[in-house]
C-alpha cells in the first residue's frame, strides 16, 4: 500500500493525539476537513496494511504499577547463544537485543515490584556467572518523536 497525501496528513495528525471524547474520529475529521467515515475507513486500511500498529491510549507502564529496568551484560562471544537462551528463559525479560559494544547484551526486566527486579538480576547472575549491570531510568524526557508519513 502506498500512502496518498490525505493518508499522510491523517497519520501525522493521529500521532499527535486525539482528545478523549464521544466522537474522536469526527473531531479529527473536522481538523482535516474529512468526514468521520472517511477517517475511520482510512485508518482501518492503514492498520490492515500494518502501517499503523494500533490506535488508542499510550499507557505509562510504570504509572500502572509495574517496575522496569534496562540491564546489560558483557557476554563472551563463544557463550553468547547459550547465555541468550538462559536470559530469555526468564519471563521477566521483556525484550533483549544483541548490540555492538563490549556490553553486547541489552535487555529490559519488567516485574510487578521493584524487589523482583533485584531478584531476577541475581538469578541471572547466578545462572550465567556474568555480572548484570542495571541502568534504571533516573529521569525520562518528554518525547517529540513523530514519524513523518
Amino acid at each position: 500500500m502506498t500512502l496518498d497525501h490525505t493518508d499522510s496528513r491523517l497519520l501525522n495528525a493521529l500521532q499527535d493525539g486525539v482528545p478523549i471524547g464521544p466522537s474522536p474520529f469526527a473531531e479529527v475529521g473536522r481538523l482535516l476537513d474529512l468526514s468521520q467515515d472517511e477517517v475511520i475507513d482510512r485508518l482501518s486500511r492503514l492498520k490492515a496494511a500494518g502501517i499503523v500498529t494500533r490506535f488508542g491510549p499510550f499507557y505509562d507502564a510504570a504509572a500502572m504499577g509495574g517496575a522496569f529496568c534496562l540491564c546489560a551484560m558483557e557476554v563472551p562471544q563463544d557463550r553468547f547463544d547459550a547465555v541468550a537462551a538462559q536470559v530469555n528463559a526468564h519471563p521477566e525479560v521483556a525484550h533483549n537485543y544483541e548490540r555492538g559494544h563490549r556490553l553486547n547484551m541489552w535487555f529490559v526486566l519488567a516485574t510487578e515490584t521493584e524487589e523482583r527486579i533485584g531478584t531476577a538480576r541475581a538469578r541471572i547472575e547466578a545462572e550465567t556467572g556474568i555480572a548484570v549491570l542495571a541502568f534504571p531510568k533516573l529521569k525520562e524526557f518528554f518525547i517529540g518523536f513523530r514519524v513523518a508519513a
Binding site: 497519520l11 493525539g17 474522536p24 492503514l46 499503523v52 491510549p57 499510550f58 504509572a63
Partner: peptide, 9 residues
C-alpha cells in the same frame, strides 16, 4: 497513566 490517545505507526 495515559500519555495520549494516538496512532502508533
Amino acid at each position: 497513566v495515559i500519555r495520549r490517545v494516538a496512532a502508533a505507526p
